[in-house]
Design a protein around this nucleic acid. Structure first.
Lengths: 149, 149
DNA sequence: TATTGTTATACTCTATAACTATA
DNA sequence: TATAGTTATAGAGTATAACAATA
């Protein structure tokens, strides 16, 4: 919006601006839903990733851009709550696989349904062709880098 | 368009899916850029908001969906680093306004430029009409609720 | 009485460094 | 030697509860 210092500071484009606001809005909804279940945004993402995958601790840490020690703690606390479990990796005896439990799956389903509910009004402002187009454009935007949950 | 409880766990729509991934991607870039300067995503957002506004502690907390005590701590740590400052509110002697400093503005500019740099390749995959269309569709999506930074 | 902001407390999240057990 | 994971530590982020100052 405003540019107090100009040097090498290109004005934000409408797209950049909209993208930032969208990010904070969606992240805000995710955080709010997580808070209803005492889960952080990070934990929500972990559950989301593990819904259909069994991954090793380090793999998960790299995937999310966190240190392995951070992931150790995240897994430990989620395991204590019965949402995840650790399994020995059958091929590498150093390795630990992380899997989601039934309770974890159920909680993930509840939360993602709630996210859909909260985001519903925003989605409702787009008609079918617009939704498809937005999804398609976001896919282009996302294409190669950083696969996410 | 929204499926609340459909016990069979409604499949995510392509749009929902793309939106989640976009959120985590952009948030990831913001976090990474913040990490280069020892700033959290939250602090980045605070700086972003204060770039063109002077707001009270509680107002800022409500705006970001955080408790006022949390905001107190955030402001305190950012102030200690010289990025923000507290000012007495002239109209209400209980009130404290938070303002960004010159150093804070400079750091914000540096970080947002870096974000643009990192997101550049993704933007580059969209031609001009596509960029405009994506921005327009996101605006529709964002329209009424939760104003953000 | 109600509101504004801070502080005390108790967690979670996070990275760094050091450690172990494998490989 | 190198990698996988854990633990110890320290600091930031977060909410709840209690508080002082002001309204």
């Amino acid at each position: 919006m405003n540019r107090l210092n100009d040097p090498g500071d290109p004005p934000e484009s409408p797209l950049e601006d909209a993208l930032m606001r969208t990010t904070f809005q969606v992240a805000g909804v995710l955080s709010a839903v997580g808070a209803e279940h005492n889960l952080s945004l990070t934990q929500i993402r972990v559950l989301g990733i593990l819904r259909d995958r069994r991954v090793r601790v380090t793999e998960l840490a790299d995937y999310m851009g966190l240190d392995k020690s951070t992931m150790s703690g995240l897994v430990e606390r989620a395991e204590r709550r019965g949402l995840l479990a650790r399994r020995k990796n059958p091929e590498d005896r150093r390795g630990v696989d992380v899997v989601i439990t039934e309770a974890g799956l159920e909680l993930a389903a509840v939360m993602y349904a709630r996210v859909r509910e909260l985001l519903g009004p925003a989605f409702a402002r787009l008609d079918q062709p617009q939704s498809e187009q937005l999804a398609a454009l976001l896919e282009v935007f996302l294409t190669p880098p950083t696969p996410n949950a």
